[in-house]
């Protein structure tokens, strides 16, 4: 069955891109390099959405996270003088403790993977019913879950006002 092999291949390639990008993000010393690798990770996530036939979500992921948030990240990184920070020590020297913690988590994960191996399966992409992607999204946001959506937007507004208040010296 070439279809399912292709699906699996896409998933694993995207998984490698996402995880590789994430590891590179936290290990780079230069903040701009970290930001570039984070962009790669976010792109991979958008690819996963696309792989699951969620085109709207994929497009919005790129538009909001890469086109908006990452651009502002880079803007801030360039405005702040990071040469000093790059020279300072960026990692804690607590190898032994970190190793123990990681091992415990690893054993935990391994245990759960062993127990639930049978229930793992690839998420099935939605069939024809998911076709009008944008409309479904709109109905979900503006009809079924209107109140939570409005509350979330109000919270964001409060956050924006707070940021403006902090940035402004006198009001």
């Amino acid at each position: 069955m070439p279809e399912s092999i292709l699906n699996g291949l896409f998933f694993y390639v995207l998984a490698v891109v996402i995880l590789g990008g994430a590891i590179m993000t936290i290990t780079r010393r230069n903040a701009v390099h970290s930001a570039i690798w984070l962009v790669v990770t976010l792109m991979g996530v958008a690819g996963l959405y696309l792989h699951l036939n969620a085109e709207f979500l994929a497009a919005v992921q790129i538009l909001v996270y890469i086109g908006g948030i990452m651009v502002l990240f880079l803007f801030v990184i360039m405005l702040v003088n990071l040469d000093e920070a790059a020279k300072q020590r960026q990692f804690n020297r607590q190898w032994s403790l970190a190793l123990i913690c990681t091992l415990v988590v690893l054993v935990e994960f391994g245990f759960f993977l062993m127990r639930g191996a049978g229930s793992f399966a690839f998420a099935e992409p939605g069939q024809g019913a998911l076709k009008p992607n944008t409309e479904l999204m709109a109905v979900a946001l503006f009809q079924d879950y209107l109140l939570p959506f409005e509350i979330a937007s109000l919270l964001l507004l409060v956050a924006i006002l707070g940021a403006v208040l902090m940035a402004k010296k006198e009001i």
Binding site: E55, A59, L63, I66, G67, M70, L74, F75, M78
Partner: peptide, 26 residues
Amino acid sequence: DTNVGLLFLLSITSVGILGIILGGWS
């Protein structure tokens, strides 16, 4: 011709900004 064509166009062009920022910084 995808069903989110215009949105995809906008998102792709917004990624293009990265080229300008990184070029200026590097």
